[in-house]
Structures are given as structure tokens and as C-alpha cells.
């Protein structure tokens, strides 16, 4: 399964990836619509959050609409089905609720952030 990997030894927390993501997926500059989030957790500590296509996708069972599936393309949100209830974001902090509250935002490994990252900290891994 491929996933987006953040190299923590290289990431500086500039969040250029967040804007790149929102532009690629939503056509706007809005970091709150990004599928990748780099939070500041303390003075010099960062928190790096993006879906890593984990082995135990609790988001799938949490979704009452069956809008998150696991198929040959990986774990992903079916946007036609998602109603933004937020149940998945309750069980995993690597999926985010859109600011309008209408859908869950989950990385689909499109790779738009990879070329935007000035630190070469992002890559798609198997």
C-alpha cells in the first residue's frame, strides 16, 4: 500500500505542503482544507499528521455511512457518501473535518505537496 511519508528529520514546519494540498484538492489557498497538517506542539516540537494508510484503519468502522473504504486504491473517502458527520475524526487525528463541516479530508497520495516541499521531506512510500 502506498502512503505519504513525512521525514521528520527534514521537516521544518513551514506548512507549504498544506497550502499546496488545498490548492490541488480544493482549488483554493486554505490550510484548513488541507489533508496534511503540521502543528506546533511545543516550543521546538512539531506534530506531523497525514493519513499513513495504517494496518488498523479505525476510520472505516467508525464511519456510519460506509463512506470510507479500503480497496485496491487504498483507504479512501468516497465523497458522494460522506456527509461530514466527523465520526472518523473522533477516532483518528490523521483525517480532518472540512471547515464547512461537510466532508472528511483524507490524503489520497496525489503528490501535489511533494514537489512544493522546499526541504524534500515528503515522498510516496510503499
Amino acid at each position: 500500500m502506498s502512503y505519504l511519508r513525512i521525514d521528520k528529520t527534514l521537516c521544518t514546519g513551514c506548512r507549504i505542503c498544506e497550502a499546496a494540498c488545498s490548492m490541488a484538492k480544493e482549488g483554493v489557498v486554505n490550510r484548513a482544507k488541507s489533508r496534511i497538517r503540521i502543528y506546533r506542539r511545543d516550543v521546538i516540537k512539531l506534530q506531523y499528521l497525514v493519513c499513513v494508510q495504517c494496518r488498523n484503519p479505525v476510520c472505516i468502522s467508525a464511519c456510519p455511512e460506509n463512506a470510507i473504504i479500503h480497496d485496491e486504491k487504498g483507504i479512501r473517502v468516497i465523497y458522494d457518501k460522506c456527509n461530514g458527520c466527523g465520526a472518523c475524526t473522533e477516532v483518528c487525528n490523521r483525517v480532518f473535518l472540512s471547515p464547512e463541516g461537510d466532508k472528511a479530508l483524507m490524503c489520497d497520495q496525489c503528490g501535489a505537496c511533494i514537489s512544493a516541499c522546499p526541504e524534500n521531506a515528503l515522498s510516496i512510500r510503499e
Binding site: 521544518t12 514546519g13 513551514c14 506548512r15 507549504i16 521546538i44 516540537k45 512539531l46 522546499p118
Partner: peptide
């Protein structure tokens, strides 16, 4: 830890 301000590719801050 190297750190950066928002949207900055220079990242000159030294943690």
C-alpha cells in the same frame, strides 16, 4: 531542530 516561519523556504530558525 530546524524550524521555519509559515510559507518560508529559507527556514533560518535554529531550535
Amino acid at each position: 531542530q530546524r524550524l521555519s516561519c509559515g510559507e518560508c523556504p529559507v527556514a533560518c530558525a535554529k531550535g
